[in-house]
Design a protein around this nucleic acid. Structure first.
Lengths: 190, 190
DNA sequence: GGACGCTGTTGACACGAAGTCAACTCTAGC
DNA sequence: GCTAGAGTTGACTTCGTGTCAACAGCGTCC
């Protein structure tokens, strides 16, 4: 089999396993069996188990969708409403992956893992800022930091919606719209 | 040495190690050396390494302070301002521990870890609701869910402040005050 | 056609960490 | 002094990771 195909196949199997179980009790042997290959081949393609895990993470984190096209032109409020509605739509469509990505760890978690998440958070923040048409603003760095923080609210609220079931989708939408508008209007301006 | 003392000593050493390094490369042997005991003793007191880790987590998560006493009586806005200011003060005082607790993991992270964090988040949310004097409200469950989500904003923004350095403390304070007021006034009411 | 080299693949080994167990030490009570 | 029990540990077993040399398929050159 072709090298890139095999690599991809192993990566897919590993992703599935890492999504559904704690990574410490997913062994490379198990991944190899799932992919129908011998264990050393996993190491051949990905080096260490840790490298493979990080690659799975990158793939998961950068799948989350935020359709950048077809943004509505209108008041800030209307734009934010639509953008966040679409965003929640995408979250719902990929809810399994999303829940996996926002599941949390604790102290002693991997700094490389944290770095990947941080980078992904910033990419999402930039897209969001672009979607609401503020990417040309001076002092965007500060706005970005605020929107990254907003991302924490987004993750936590979608978890309440999708995992805990203590919030409805409409609650989450209202919360996020109100929070983002507050940030842009009241908190961001010096 | 007395059993509880020894247990405590091992727990303290383990906490220090888990705080500063990824838990997968902290070995029980290392913990044992740090505590000046033989490795099996660690297992004797805590069973598995996982159990010890979870106990460290519980201790870390439930240390975070939110002084419940001396709440100011006045407008909602003034109360929220003071409560969050004090909260940030506590965060700053225990910033190392705090940063350790909000450091993130990824998919495949432990469900037990997630459960501990979720419980801690709810405790903090309840204290916050109590501090702003809304714990007697009907439909508190929904408010609590919203405040738990707000906790996500609080974590992410304090991370921007303490780790990334992209926000000032005053930024975080303004952000959290505005967001919490928005939640209580605009989002929470049906 | 056979030798050669390259890529994909694997069996077998080395190393290290987790968890278990029987045995040792020391103190308290008879 | 002797026993009982708690605290403690050395030694062993098991398991997972990572490495290495070797094998199989296949295209290429003499």
């Amino acid at each position: 089999m072709d090298a890139t195909e095999r690599r991809e196949q192993i990566l897919v199997c590993a992703t599935r396993l890492f999504e559904e179980r704690p990574h410490h009790d997913v062994s490379t042997a198990e991944i190899a069996v799932a992919a129908g290959v011998a264990r050393p081949l996993v190491h051949h393609y990905f080096g260490t188990k840790r490298t493979l895990y990080l690659e799975v993470l990158r793939r998961l984190y950068f799948i989350p969708p935020l359709s950048p096209a077809g943004l509505p032109s209108g008041s800030l409020e209307a734009t934010v409403e639509v953008v966040l509605d679409r965003w929640l739509e995408g979250i719902w469509r990929h809810r399994n992956t999303w829940v996996a990505t926002i599941s949390v760890g604790g102290p002693g978690s991997d700094p490389d893992v944290a770095a990947i998440m941080r980078e992904a958070d910033e990419v999402v923040a930039d897209r969001l800022i672009e979607a609401i048409g503020l990417s040309a603003d001076p002092d965007v760095a500060r706005l970005r930091a605020l929107v990254v923080a907003f991302g924490g609210l987004a993750k936590a609220s979608t978890r309440q919606w999708l995992v805990a079931g203590t919030l409805e989708r409409s609650d989450v939408h209202r919360l996020l719209v109100a929070a983002l508008l507050t940030i842009v209007r009241d908190v961001y301006p010096r």
